[in-house]
């Protein structure tokens, strides 16, 4: 049985390192898409607090829209949660909504 794809959005709420316009555009597109998804205020805070929810949010077939993949991977590892090989991290610090959304939402043309 295949593992269903999940989407996880991180709002990076507690620092100004991800462009606000990018976060807003991606979150709005996700909510308007009608796709199910998980959203968290800040993965760094969850990792710092050793929030066990990170174990639920990790997984094999998950697309994480957050920041640098290396940072996301080790933030999860810091609480003992492992991202599977099939996990994909999309970087809102460097990529524009125009390049992010086609990777997240199948109906958005690249």
């Amino acid at each position: 049985m295949s593992i269903p794809l999940r989407i996880l959005y991180c709002n990076c709420s507690y620092a100004n390192v991800v462009p606000k316009a990018t976060k807003e555009a991606v979150l709005r597109a996700l909510t308007e898409s009608g796709m199910p998804f998980d959203a968290v205020p800040d993965l760094c805070e969850m990792s710092a607090q050793r929030d066990p929810s990170l174990h639920d949010l990790a997984g094999e077939n998950v697309k994480i829209v957050a920041c640098y993949p290396r940072a996301v991977k080790w933030l999860f590892h810091a609480v003992g949660a492992k991202l599977g090989d099939g996990a994909e991290v999309i970087n809102m610090r460097t990529d524009s909504p125009d390049s992010i959304l086609p990777k997240l939402l199948p109906e958005v043309p690249a």
């Binding site: 269903p4 796709m35 199910p36 929810s53 639920d56």
Partner: peptide, 10 residues
């Protein structure tokens, strides 16, 4: 989590 009939959340 936005829970919809057409997919999965954690």
């Amino acid at each position: 989590s936005v829970v919809r009939p057409n997919g999965a959340v954690s």
